[in-house]
């Protein structure tokens, strides 16, 4: 099983949302990491056939997905970033309706709906209207609809944004448990969503794919660039203006800073083991600054 994108580009007028993205996906979880506006959603929409690429190709097992048409849509499950549910439908009716749109046989659909409501922990509220559901429950009904056709490719776009930590962990575990025999493409800007479950991480920046590697290989790229520095209170501002500071832990001597830098930020700086948050900061610091400025 192989999904491949080749020179995939999407333009909206003069704006290039996805720029010549090339890559290949096989069984396993792929985390797509990027700041807001990096092209994650555009890439996901193209893979789900919701948006057409301006140029480039997407192929499944060597055949162009637009040539495959509904045969491709039969093997995908998609959970968009903003899922609008029919609020007046009950959870069960909503899933049965989606099953019909996916072309599932009525009897098979009923069995599958039962199974999935159990899997996502919503069996007890099957007769409740989805309009009354919490954010986490809506995401769970979202993942259930994506799994209705037992997809070989599962595309989930920022599934945990807006969820509380407990729901996020629950969702991550659920995704991990169903990822066995599928290609799972998960886009996020929350590092911990993919840290332990991704086989490979794709880093997108301004529409370009800048890395597609295993988490270990990616961390290798910043090995030796993460430092722990003990600083006095009055030096904090100076460090913050000169370096990428990932974390500040206050202590009795001032604060311990986690700094990403090519060179040691101070003679007393100690090397630290990099993690994916450091990696995110390394690639997207300016995006964090822009977000902070907006706040």
């Amino acid at each position: 099983m192989n999904l491949a994108v080749e020179q995939l580009t999407k333009r909206f007028g003069g704006h290039v949302a996805a720029n010549e993205i090339t890559g290949e996906f096989t069984k396993g979880v792929y985390g797509i990491l990027g700041a807001n506006g990096s092209g994650k959603t555009t890439l996901m929409r193209m893979l789900a056939t919701v948006a057409h690429p301006t140029s480039g190709t997407i192929s499944f097992n060597g055949v162009d997905i637009y040539e495959l048409g509904d045969r491709y849509r039969d093997v995908i499950g998609y959970l968009p970033q903003h899922i609008g549910l029919y609020k007046n439908f009950t959870a069960e009716k909503f899933l049965l309706y989606i099953a019909a749109l996916k072309g599932l046989d009525k009897r098979a659909a009923a069995v599958k709906v039962d199974e999935l409501l159990e899997l996502v922990g919503l069996a007890h509220v099957r007769k409740k209207k989805v309009g009354t559901f919490s954010g986490g429950m809506k995401q769970r009904i979202g993942i259930a609809q994506a799994l209705l056709n037992d997809p070989r490719i599962l595309i989930v776009d920022e599934p945990t944004s807006g969820l509380d930590p407990k729901e996020r962990i629950r969702f991550r575990n659920l995704l991990s448990s169903i990822s066995g025999e599928r290609i799972v493409l998960l886009s996020t800007h929350i590092v911990s969503d993919i840290e332990f479950i991704a086989k490979e991480i794709l880093i997108l920046k301004e529409g370009r794919l800048i890395h597609k590697r295993s988490p270990r290989d990616l961390l290798e790229t910043i090995s030796g660039k993460v430092w722990l520095v003990q600083a006095a209170e009055h030096d904090l501002h100076q460090y913050q203006s000169h370096y990428k500071v990932g974390n500040i832990v206050r202590n009795e001597k001032g604060a311990e800073l986690r700094i990403i830098s090519d060179i040691p930020p101070s003679p007393t700086a100690k090397k630290a083991v990099p993690n994916l948050e450091d990696l995110y900061l390394h690639y997207f610091e300016e995006d964090l600054d822009a977000a902070a400025a907006q706040v």
Partner: peptide
């Protein structure tokens, strides 16, 4: 036009039956 007006269209576009057919 309920699906378009209630934000379901993105999801429905990925289904087997095309949204125009629906």
């Amino acid at each position: 036009f309920r699906s378009r007006d209630e934000g379901m269209i993105e999801l429905e576009l990925s289904f087997r039956y095309s949204h125009s057919q629906v």
